[in-house]
Design a protein around this nucleic acid. Structure first.
Lengths: 212, 212
DNA sequence: CTGAACCCTGAAGAAACGATCAAGAAGCCG
DNA sequence: CGGCTTCTTGATCGTTTCTTCAGGGTTCAG
């Protein structure tokens, strides 16, 4: 469906159905735009995107399932230029592609690099955290909070903001859940709240990464 | 809602509510991104977009009602760079804006920068204050007052105004609480009320940043 | 010059806040 | 369906922060 609409709009649109094929084909044809379905079998779509970004700076338009909004945010941070949530209308897709092609090109695509804070390393794409080289086992929520904080280390995040981004804006409940997860995080990172090396408490507001 | 989310994300986001206002404001502030609601009264949103394009090449993100797919196509053809259909989640909007701003631009994006007054630096997003490079530990209220004053250094803020903005318009109590917090602030900033370098007393009114 | 209004500041009680723990609920995996 | 992990709630405790109050200084108008 995607391919036929793009071709009817005048584009040459080779189709592949697996992640490895996508990477091979991208190498071979050097496309201007890649429409990437996150539901691709054989390899995680985000991972495909990251790999594509290692050798091409062409536009990447992601297709995601409506349910996973988090994916879209990750997608954009991983180097995608735009995304569409399913179900979408074919004309929308075509319009997006056209818009992308009207744009000037980015010379330096931003690949989500692992971020380091002292001996702490946060790999947002691989969802891995290491402390002094040792892997740290974090739960999903703990990781997401840490990923959010480390993504913008200069920003003081309000509890509500953390909830909006990590949970869902529609979430209802006590904002201080965040505190508990932060406590667990600090515990696992051997971080003393009174003398924090990683996570700062911003009293009356929320939390922020320590930037010395 | 749109404005508050963008501001929380660190952007300066003036709000206007009619098409003519949008055009005037765009002329005045030369924005990096315009978020344009197609449902704007007073002028057809598409027409507003067309007129904006006559004098600016900033990014335009359109907000449209889900029902009108045609609008989105027209919108893109008329010069919008992206669009979102309502209802959308605030995070989506912020992510889209951020993606737009990651694109190569002629000028640097105007993300809220730390403000400096002599050797005083106020970082509103990170909620950090430094004096001659040294971090200053402010309480929430102290910081909020300073952030308010520095946001509009030319404005003399009445005590009541400060309370409305920093506390809550519903707050009841003695307006002169502000004085106490100002005193603490001045103390921490080594600011002498008789010879203020940062915070001026406006007798009978309130306080204002020193503008030398 | 003088009184009244206004402002500054220190101190102390009151309120708010954050860290932590434990227990129950919910979710996930086999 | 269990067993296990993870999440959420609620309560407690120590600490920080806010507010009030009062005394004393400063400014301004008459």
């Amino acid at each position: 469906m995607v391919g036929s609409y793009l071709e009817r709009a005048g584009y040459v649109a080779p189709l592949v159905h697996t992640g490895p094929d996508a990477i091979d084909t991208a190498h071979a044809v050097q496309p201007d735009v890649i429409v990437l379905d996150l539901g691709l079998p054989g390899l995680d779509g985000v991972e495909v995107c990251r790999r594509l970004r290692t050798f091409t700076d062409c536009y990447i338009l992601m297709l995601t399932a409506r349910a996973e909004e988090v994916d879209t945010i990750v997608g954009l941070s991983v180097g995608a230029d735009d995304y569409l949530t399913k179900p979408f209308r074919p004309r929308e897709l075509v319009a997006r592609v056209q818009t992308l092609l009207r744009r000037p090109r980015d010379q330096a695509p931003s690949i989500a690099q692992p971020r380091t804070f002292g001996s702490l390393t946060v790999d947002a794409v691989g969802r891995r955290v290491t402390l002094a080289g040792q892997p740290v086992g974090l739960t999903r929520t703990e990781f997401d909070i840490l990923a959010l904080l480390t993504a913008s280390p200069a920003v003081a995040f309000a509890r509500r903001r953390i909830i909006d981004e990590v949970w869902d804006p529609a979430w209802v409940g006590d904002e201080h859940v965040v505190d508990v997860h932060i406590a667990h995080l600090r515990n696992k990172l051997a971080d003393d709240p009174a003398e924090p090396r990683y996570i700062d408490t911003v009293r009356g507001v929320g939390y922020r990464m320590v930037t010395s």
